[in-house]
Design a protein around this nucleic acid. Sequence first.
DNA 1: TAGTGGTCTAGACCACAAT
DNA 2: TTGTGGTCTAGACCACTAC
Lengths: 259, 259
Amino acid sequence: MADFRGRPAYLQIADDIRSQILDGTLQAEDRLPSEADLMADYGVSRIVVRNAVEVLRSEGLVVKQQGRGSFVRAQRPQRTRVVGDLYSERPEGSPFAASARASGQVPEWEYQTRRTTASKTIADRLGIQAGDPVMRTSYRFFADGEPAMLSTSFEPLAITEGTPVEQPEGGPVTGVVPRMDAIGIHITHVVEDVTGRSARPYEAETLKVPVGVPILAIERTYYAKSRPIETADIVVSSDRYVLSYRLPVPPRTDQPTPL
Amino acid sequence: MADFRGRPAYLQIADDIRSQILDGTLQAEDRLPSEADLMADYGVSRIVVRNAVEVLRSEGLVVKQQGRGSFVRAQRPQRTRVVGDLYSERPEGSPFAASARASGQVPEWEYQTRRTTASKTIADRLGIQAGDPVMRTSYRFFADGEPAMLSTSFEPLAITEGTPVEQPEGGPVTGVVPRMDAIGIHITHVVEDVTGRSARPYEAETLKVPVGVPILAIERTYYAKSRPIETADIVVSSDRYVLSYRLPVPPRTDQPTPL
DNA sequence: TAGTGGTCTAGACCACAAT
DNA sequence: TTGTGGTCTAGACCACTAC
């Protein structure tokens, strides 16, 4: 391919393939031409076609599989984490399990709980001092056997120590809201701060996704009035998840604007 | 660098630099060694050091600037779009403007409004037929003069046609909720579906971010009871934004679990 | 075994930024 | 002018997948 107009060849090739994907010439799950084919088709070296495909991969349009080829990615994520309704309806157990069951999937999870002390970041989020004792629980959630979500949560031991719900899992009640209810602490609201970034190596490995795919990172904190009760870092692959927030809009209290 | 243990050299180099960033040896805004320096330091070819830095770039730890160098990225986004409170407090005007003002930023926006017909996707979201007339408005929002957010919204003309609020902007009232109040339609809730992916070329150009940076894409729909009233596609750079959702947890109505 | 993508060498020329 | 990253050539060998 001649590098006309000064636009780099790899971007022109990416444009070409992208338009074939978007207009349906290449459909979901179709294999792209191999790197060798693309080199011949466009008359460029291998690094150019690799750069072109990498552009499409980073846009989420293509996935690569060593030894098999590159494929047009199925477009939209399949799983939905419906958040607003989740807290309104107060289901049993964890939000993850409720969400998975609502999607007809079988939820499973592994966890590790241990006593530790709060880092400065976690202390700030919980309104305690760095070094204060906390219960830390790392979860790995599976939907239909596939890794789906990672979560690490922290609770101040000053709240739960010595109570029957000191252990987040394995006790008489599970789920933050019911557990806290059981010791007389009533969760009033949840704040979820959502950011997007690329998967770190540990996350990519644990979620079994390629490195560099975009992920959604959620900082979730449960509050009883203004007091933080639990905070968690949650990571999901944005390939797989949509986060759906349902937010009430209260009725207006003043008079309507005259027209 | 010898490729010991079979782990690719570029990943080992990325690990090395990453740990220097995470442990503070390299601080925010510091320049990384140049590609030539890294080639010499690790004894590898240029493509290896480029792959290594690309890994860190895709993780959001590093930004590259042609002619200047690669730099450790300031870690967390600066702007917060606080969503739950926004709808609860029913501020004047658009959610964007209210959010920016709350962060002490000067909001500005451009828009283009035109009558058109609904695509199948938009029709599904609005509960109308493909081809039905809609009012389409594209926004480009700026905070302190910098592009911050893109939005394209759609309203069925069956709802607003012939009313004083047919035009989303420039009429007597602005903001979806107040405008609909003015014609007797009372928004009850908002659904925001959040996904993450990499910026498409148009989005990268319009938001003035490098291609491939992770972005957050929001599908927002306003409802009056179960009837969709307006839907919008919103895009922000996740470099710049945190989406903060505040979700109420209603008091339990049944009896607490006995311990 | 053949074909795929993954990693890597050793160069080259270019565009952009700082001086 | 110098140094930076951006693009590109023309090869090579390896690991994984499918047959």
